[in-house]
Design a protein around this nucleic acid. Sequence first.
DNA 1: AAGCATTTGTAAACAGTGCTTACAAAGAAA
DNA 2: TTTCTTTGTAAGCACTGTTTACAAATGCTT
Lengths: 207, 207
Amino acid sequence: MTDVKIRRGDLREALITHAQEEAKAGTIEQMSLRHAARELGVSSGAVYRHFDDKDALLQEIVLRGMHELKAKFAAIRPKDAPARSVELALHRGRELVRTYIQFAQDNPSLWHLMFGRIGAELKHILMCDPEEASYTAFDVCHENMLDLWRLGALKQEPSLDDVRYVWSATHGAAELTLSHQRIDFAEIDAVCDQTSERNMRAIGFAG
Amino acid sequence: MTDVKIRRGDLREALITHAQEEAKAGTIEQMSLRHAARELGVSSGAVYRHFDDKDALLQEIVLRGMHELKAKFAAIRPKDAPARSVELALHRGRELVRTYIQFAQDNPSLWHLMFGRIGAELKHILMCDPEEASYTAFDVCHENMLDLWRLGALKQEPSLDDVRYVWSATHGAAELTLSHQRIDFAEIDAVCDQTSERNMRAIGFAG
DNA sequence: AAGCATTTGTAAACAGTGCTTACAAAGAAA
DNA sequence: TTTCTTTGTAAGCACTGTTTACAAATGCTT
């Protein structure tokens, strides 16, 4: 992987990058700090100048993953850009599903960290942020549904429970797609279509 | 935990039981074979007379978990007991959701094993079994939906895609409930109701 | 520029891990 | 009783995360 000599003080970022690469490669579960340090040409004790323990490093890359996904979501339905047409809102809904599922597909082991033990205390970044101004991924879903409602495309105003359900369905689809056993979801695209179409049905789309 | 002296030859089952206890306690991620062996009053090498490696032991308890869940499903909608009323089919549908979510709640870390790396090659037990006669959990869901269709309660015949979607939604609900961050699903029961109600909407329940 | 303090690295050690190998005892089969 | 197979042991290998005592590099102050 990376084997450029680390300049004094760059170790922290180098370790994060290394971990991210292992995540992309899907080998992060068996990542070893000693091996990482060796790879970066540094003693194993040096790691502990930058992270309290192994979990702290993993948490850091989970944190970054969360922000990345959150940003992707916000780009699809920007905070002050409500959909002006039902078509656009529907398209955005599908894009949200596609983005979520694609992210899982592209970062399988990071994804497991994000929604497993490591990410437990960081999920609020995606779901509900204490800072009100935050506009989380969850908010994006909610706003997009509200757009549909405002445009008269839903039978009733979408509740938070609706958002949670849609999120669950999408999350589940991502998870099952990841390890797409014989449930051979033909291919990602079909899953996205199916999921977002039924998401709409579930929240009472009147089309 | 268990500290009865192991009779010669009982080690295998004792190890499985021990692992299951660790799973129930939610500590299986950091389970150690050496520690388990010590706990059972046996040398660490003895373990390898019964399991190729650590993963093999984990796989065994995943296998048993799968069969347990599958059995619970089959009990709700037995193979040759189609629902005679819409009410019953709806009730069964809710019970399936409840069972799934409750199972995750009761066995959090086993559940992660089941749907993570370890369980990857065993999912067919739940989803689609090569032996046709098997009647998997997936089949149960499908049959229950077909019951609704036969009783005239659905707008169209439920497809495999419908089953997959409903499964995804339920699976996602279970996962999000497990680590119910601020998304504080009021309590399990409410999630079950919400999930199964919207599941019905998604597959075109005409009620 | 000199001295000092902080940051960031090293080397060595500790306690733990999964797993293998050589050997011994227990049980079943001949 | 003798043999063979199964199931255990003890010791060791190569690894892990983490801590400690120490040293070098860097930045700050006088």
